[in-house]
Structure formats: C-alpha cells, structure tokens
Amino acid sequence: MIKLEDISGMMHANGYISDPQVAMSVFLSLQLEKPLLVEGPAGVGKTEIAKVMANVLQTDLIRLQCYEGLDATHALYEWNYQRQLLHLKITEHDTGTIEEKEKTIFGESFLLKRPLLEAITHTRKPVLLIDEIDRSDEEFESFLLEVLSDWQITIPETGTITATYIPQVILTGNRTRDLSDALRRRCLYLYIDYPDFEKELTIVKKKVPGINEKLALSITSFMQEVRRLKLEKIPGISETLDWAFALAALHLDHLDKTVIEQTLGVIIKDWKDTRQVQMSLSELMEKTGVHPRVQPT
C-alpha cells in the first residue's frame, strides 16, 4: 500500500507537482477505493492527475469522455451487429441447431467493450477517467451512480459481469452544470485552482527542462499578472507550459515587448482578450519587472 508521505514524491517523479491537499485526496481515494471528483478551471491539470495516477500505479488508463447525449450503450457495450450477421451468413450452410448458432454469436468475440465494461473486466486494477462528467446528461449521471456503487453490469444475453478489480475512478468537471448531491456523496472532492507563483515556477522548471532560470521567472510572474486581468478565457497552466516551450525553443533568455506581442497567441485564445492584454501590456511588464530593452541610439 502506498504511504501518504510517498505520494507527493511519486507524483513528482511522474512530472506532477502536487500540494498537500492533492496528495491527501489522492491518498484517500486510493486507500478507501472511492472515486475522486476533481473540479477546477480549464487547464489546471485535472485530467493530468488521472494520467499520473495510472503511471504511479503502473496500470492502464481507461478514458470515458463525456458529452451531451452520451448514453449507456456508448459507455458500456454494444453487440457487433455486422459481425454477427456476417458470421451467420458464412455459417449458413453449416449443420447446427439454432441454439448452437445463437450461443456463438452472443459470445465474447462479438461484444464491443466500451470504457465502463472495459474497466470492469480489466485484468489489472485500472484507472478509469470519466472526463468532463458535467457535460453529460442527468440521466447518464444517475446511470453512472449505479455502476459506481455496484461495479457490476448485466448483459441480458450472457448474464451479469462483476468487476474482478474495482477500478480507481477519477471524475473531472468544469462546473458547467451542478452535479447531483448523490454523485458528490459517493466521491471524494478536490478543487484545483490556478497555482500560486512558487508552484507554477516549479511546474515550469520541471516540465520544461533546460529553460533559462530568468526566463522561467518572468514567464511565471507575467502569467500570474495576466490572470488578474478580467479576461474571458483565463489561461491555465497548460498555456504557461506551451508558452515556456515555445520561448525555450526560440532560445530566448528574457521576455521583451516584441516577443510577448509576437507569441501572445500561445496563451491568449480570444480576440477581445488579446486586445485587452495588448492595451495593458506596458503596465503588465512593469508589474512583472520585464523592462523593454533599451535600444542603443
């Protein structure tokens, strides 16, 4: 069993900078075998937790991406109707009773496993990531509740399948819709916010090896200031990292006005936001201590 003290280190080794609250939540969810519901703004590393957890546990990650209109068949299983039909066609002239034929076409090889069934029948304890659960419909949410509590799925043609290993479940949400209390009660809850300066700096340094120390510092402080502006789409850590990668690839060692203006598209993804950042660029640069380079006259 994994100890609480080790969790941060193990996640760090897999490239995830956690804090005590994240470590505690992950630890509890492992210990109690409870699903972990992770909420927070876009791009702060919600999905990443699941990936890292799969790495830490050295197991597979099974992902169920939710969207509006997702229903049970897409999440559980489907019969491979075409294959069944073709099989019958091929064996048309065989001598066999109808019962025998029926038995063969409702066998394992004609079953298309979708993520939930896949997770339940997996040969190792997998990590099941249910991404953006708030985008699915209420009906699907209540269906999910049933699966998450019983860990068994009934297929009318073959019978009930019970989980060999209970998957480690991570649900993520963006708060586009309020999730039901019933679902919340079954999960542990974790809210990840935008990181503070130190954490973001550590993440940049860890994820972008070989980045100039000074550049990392100014990128981080610039991003921290940008988040204070009232933007429509606030850039997350993934944007910071993209930007850091981009600037590191350009072999820059500091930020200046031209560079920021040219690469702004990496962090700001909205036309109005771009305008706003451009307008307050001088102010931002002053705050972050990035000074426009003095041109020799």
């Binding site: 609250q21 505690m24 809850y189 809210y191």
Partner: peptide, 19 residues
C-alpha cells in the same frame, strides 16, 4: 495538525462552496 486539516477537508467537502 497539517495532515489532520487536509484529511478533514478532503473527507467533508463536497463542492467548491464547501471549501
């Protein structure tokens, strides 16, 4: 104290408003 705080926070909170 620190672990105790984080533990209770993880167990009892269910939404952002709770936190």
């Amino acid at each position: 104290n620190i672990n105790f705080y984080h533990l209770l926070r993880a167990v009892f909170c269910r939404k952002k408003e709770d936190l």
